[in-house]
């Protein structure tokens, strides 16, 4: 959705480069297993799509002659080091196996939970949020919220299926969206442009 929007409108105002870069870090550190394990064709293709689309979005915002001019550089000022460092420490201390790939995988789970924060802060600073940008954040949050249902279903149907690190991080991630969801639905109901209160 976001890539299509940027490609079609040649405009990325209201889009946080910081969040996109955090997602790129999340995907690369999590999908290292592309190199040594195979789950399914669907799984492999989706991993490549996630890595590729975020890399493409970053390229557009940073380097595209027209798109880069529309980037809200002065507004997108979230200090991502305050997210990356704690997640890295958490990944080093709370994991299931003290190996490089496992620590990076766990780090990516923690980082993903908070990766949307720079985008939410930028949305709050944006007066009139572009409909497509609002939809992108809604779909991203909705996608993760559906995982909650997926986990409940798998817990009930697959004996021994449990993964506490993923469950707790995923629940926090979805909780971070709650406020946004509220205002998204309200603007939808009233047929108004989305704007978050500051």
């Amino acid at each position: 959705v976001l890539l299509l929007k940027i490609h079609a409108t040649k405009n990325c105002s209201g889009v946080s480069l910081k969040t996109q870069e955090l997602y790129a870090i999340v995907f690369v550190t999590r999908y290292l297993d592309l190199l040594f394990s195979f789950i399914s064709l669907y799984n492999t293709i989706m991993k490549l799509i996630f890595i590729g689309s975020s890399a493409c979005i970053i390229w557009y915002i940073r380097f595209h002659r027209v798109v880069s001019q529309t980037y809200d550089r002065e507004q997108d000022t979230f200090r991502v080091i305050f997210l990356i460092l704690p997640c890295l420490l958490l990944g080093i201390f709370i994991n299931h196996e003290f190996t490089i790939t496992e620590i990076l995988w766990t780090f990516s789970i923690y980082l993903e939970a908070v990766a949307i924060l720079p985008q939410l802060v930028l949305l709050q600073r944006t007066k009139n949020v572009d409909t497509l940008t609002g939809n992108y954040v809604f779909l991203l949050g909705g996608y993760r919220a559906l995982y909650l249902l997926n986990w409940i279903y798998r817990f009930l149907t697959e004996p021994g299926y449990r993964q506490w690190i993923v469950w707790i991080s995923g629940t926090i991630q979805t909780a971070i969206y709650c406020d946004f969801f509220y205002y998204y639905f309200q603007s939808w109901r009233r047929n108004e442009k989305l704007s978050l209160p500051s």
Partner: peptide
């Protein structure tokens, strides 16, 4: 705590 090793979720 132990948990499943196969990482089949995205």
């Amino acid at each position: 705590f132990r948990e499943e090793k196969e990482k089949d979720e995205l």
